[in-house]
């Protein structure tokens, strides 16, 4: 395929495919990391309410979203 030996094709397409799978698995397994997003405000007391952590005790130096 593509004028290349089979081994070359398997390696140059197979390994990147494995990295894509790794990325997707990581994104799936880390889906609950958003729970830490409450830490984006000014320092303050932490409250563990029934809906999970809702504390504002997060970044003391945040200056806003810069994505």
């Amino acid at each position: 395929m593509f004028g290349l030996p089979t081994t070359t094709v398997v390696i140059i397409f197979g390994i990147p495919a494995l990295w894509v799978v790794y990325t997707l698995v990581f994104v799936f397994l880390s889906r609950r990391w958003g729970a830490e997003d409450a830490a984006g405000g000014a320092p303050g007391p932490l409250t563990d309410g029934p809906g999970g952590p809702t504390g504002t005790g997060g970044l003391g130096h945040g200056t806003g979203d810069r994505s």
Binding site: I12, P16, W19, V20, T23, F26, V27, S30, R31, W33, G34, E36, D37, A39, G40, G58, L59, G62, D65, R66, S67
Partner: peptide, 23 residues
């Protein structure tokens, strides 16, 4: 990073960029 969870979405951007650029 703005928040620790930024690493999650950043991984998608990183892999996408790498696939396009590196080879």
């Amino acid at each position: 990073m703005k928040k620790p969870s930024v690493a999650r979405a950043a991984s998608l951007y990183a892999t996408g960029f790498n696939l396009l650029f590196i080879p």
